[in-house]
Design a protein around this nucleic acid. Structure first.
Lengths: 389, 389
DNA sequence: CGACTTTCGTCGAATATCGACGATAGGATC
DNA sequence: GATCCTATCGTCGATATTCGACGAAAGTCG
């Protein structure tokens, strides 16, 4: 039987401690409306499972100082995996999202799901051993993939890259080894989650822009991640922009944003005027070296992206836009281009409270978000139930 | 004390009956995990308050046929008000959203909040009398206003029209007479709510387009209404489109969508070639009469709006776009223009499962949405608590 | 028409929650 | 530094709520 109603058990009380803030029993009684004695019973239960710990004492208000209870982040761990086209980052984090151990390795997503996910399983096992943690401490796995994912089922859908992954049941594969919840999502989506967690915890409307080979948006609107009807919300790489007239995109259309402002386009342009670069890393290095043409090209890309973001601002009305992805490593030039266009085109009221800044989470945005996604599930009332409370 | 935890009272059980579907006691026991005897106690409580009623019997499965219990929509009523710049529609609806009585009257929003809201109060009182309902049956009021509203506080913020309304505490004014929850939102937002309820109950990602004097979007993403950081999400009237180059908008910029595709622009164009029209209604009539120039103008407006909607599709990835507002009354011409652009520009995958259709709720979208918003609040656990369960 | 099946309402039993009380651990006062 | 005061903590009996069983009720099926 699925327990929906029923009493106020330890898992329900635990929800009031999820944020990591230490609280006294009295505070919890106030919050929940239960008697202090009942709270104590629940706390004992949670203490037994190690999910919470006493955290010193609060200041006395004239009598015996109240003991503070807080989430014990080290009680369990989750896996956060951010898989790209050519690299993968896998981390073990505790329940506060703190990375305990991580690896960044080459990886060929084109090898297909069997090979890649088997590698992921091995890597997780290895990291768990290195952390000196039994597998039983693992309570959830979050995975980001470089393409559209139907989040409910965890299956990639129509990915433009990732041959062999279309419709593959990623959670089922992972559950063959780890019998815990497996959460899968688009890499840009989890980056948005990570970015919010690390930099803008109070922002309910935030847009994360990934600028790299492709250009994509992770959108948090009304406090929740926006995935859209088919999991392809934020897929702005093939929006048509005026400056792209005549430029053919690999998607078959012409004038796509990606075909003008994506890193391959910028690199090709710079090669055309004699710069010997082929990778994004080399492009970033060239910009950082102060090469004027490269700087101009990147700034123009920022302007082009800004064209589309201006419309996003009108539609979503975010309070923050953060720019991340490999190309964002090249300093403020892209952002300067974005700002130039967005601030001049948006209505004053919308622009007034809008921050456009570089990603604070940087390269860790992906694993941070995957970790959040996994923790969120693990600590939910249903998840906690499974853990043992 | 705010009751947060505590037992499973009648208000909690009520949540399982909110959808209006009749259920047997056994089904409710299954759903909630409570014993049948406990369910019976709660049902009795709800029956006493009249919030639910027995609805015949379900088919016997070999024994005594189970009695069906369902929400009693007539138990209470809510007020739904859709106030525009020059007209207002006010309705009394039951808890299923069925309109019991409504009026559509001229109204000058420029008269300011005091005058307009006093009129609203009088109108509500009159309608309640006409419905033969005591004021005590009223449990919530939903109001839509033609401008940005900070929904949490119910105050208009920086409205481009509605002089005198900026920052006015609408709920406080209404509560002077009706001590019930007062919900206020942008008119386009409530139209989106109404449209979904009346036409697309299962769509979690839907865009409602209001095409009239202004052009705005009501966006439901991930199942929740998207309001944005300042309540101006979906405000696409001043997005720049290429065809608008050189056309000055009343906002001061040039090339705004509204300055090209809004009804004043279309009317001005048609007057320029000798058509004697001044109002939207006349424009609609002209289109319906088969005037080729008018049809072409409206279709072109559809294409212009489609330009912006194409970007929306990439960003939001909706499953439905519905076109409403005064101009949408002019038949399929606008929609044809929108489809023309959106379907040809969007990625095949996004376009494949996207329906672009005329509003099903039509002129009632606003009050339908305001009614939903009010009912939603009234039937929530906190709201029901206040009603008496 | 009687046996069977399933639901409904009631009531005692089981369980969970509450409130009070003494113990505990500091701060305040002299 | 000893004593009083205050506020929290853990325990335990009292209380309220929920459960499960039982008989009555209301149909179906043979």
């Amino acid at each position: 039987m699925v327990k929906i109603a029923g009493g106020f058990g330890a898992s329900e009380l635990f929800q009031f401690l999820r944020d990591g803030e230490p609280r006294t029993r009295a505070e919890l009684a106030q919050l929940t409306g239960l008697a202090r004695s009942t709270i104590s019973l629940r706390i004992d239960e949670l203490l037994e499972h190690g999910l919470v710990t006493p955290v010193g004492e609060a200041v006395s208000t004239g009598g015996r100082p109240p003991a503070q209870i807080a989430l014990n982040p080290g009680a369990r761990v989750v896996v956060a995996a951010d898989l790209g086209a050519t690299h993968g980052r896998v981390a073990i984090t505790d329940l506060s999202g703190t990375v305990l151990r991580s690896v960044f390795e080459d990886l060929v997503i084109d090898n297909g799901p069997e090979v890649v996910l088997d590698w992921l399983v091995l890597t997780i096992n290895r990291l768990m051993v290195e952390c000196d943690r039994p597998i039983s401490d693992l309570v959830a796995v979050g995975i980001g993939l470089p393409g559209p994912v139907e989040h409910e089922s965890g299956r990639p859908t129509n990915p433009p890259i990732m041959p062999g992954w279309d419709g593959y049941d990623v959670p089922a594969h992972m559950r063959r080894t780890f019998s815990v919840p497996i959460l899968v999502d688009n890499d840009v989506n989890i980056m948005a989650l990570g970015e919010r967690a690390m930099g803008w915890p109070d922002a309910d409307n935030i847009i994360f822009v990934k600028v790299s080979t492709g250009i994509g948006l992770g959108i948090i609107g009304g406090g929740v991640l926006q995935r859209g009807a088919q999991g392809i919300a934020g897929d702005i790489g093939h929006v048509k922009i005026p400056r792209g007239a005549g430029v053919v995109c690999k998607c078959g259309n012409e004038g796509c944003l990606e075909a003008i402002a994506g890193s391959p386009a910028i690199i090709a342009d710079l090669r055309g005027i004699g710069r010997d670069i082929t990778t994004v890393a080399e492009l970033v290095a060239l910009v950082k070296s102060g090469d004027t043409s490269a700087i101009q090209a990147v700034r123009q890309a920022g302007r082009d992206i800004g064209e589309v973001l201006t419309v996003c601002v009108s539609i979503i009305n975010p309070s923050v836009i953060t720019i991340g992805g490999a190309l964002a490593q090249a300093g403020e030039h892209i952002i300067a281009g974005v700002r130039e266009v967005v601030y001049s085109r948006s209505t004053p009221f919308a622009a007034e409270h809008l921050s456009i800044v570089q990603s604070r989470a940087g390269e860790m945005a992906g694993v941070a978000g995957a970790s959040i996604m996994a923790i969120e599930r693990a600590l939910s009332p249903e998840g906690i139930e499974g853990i043992g409370a």
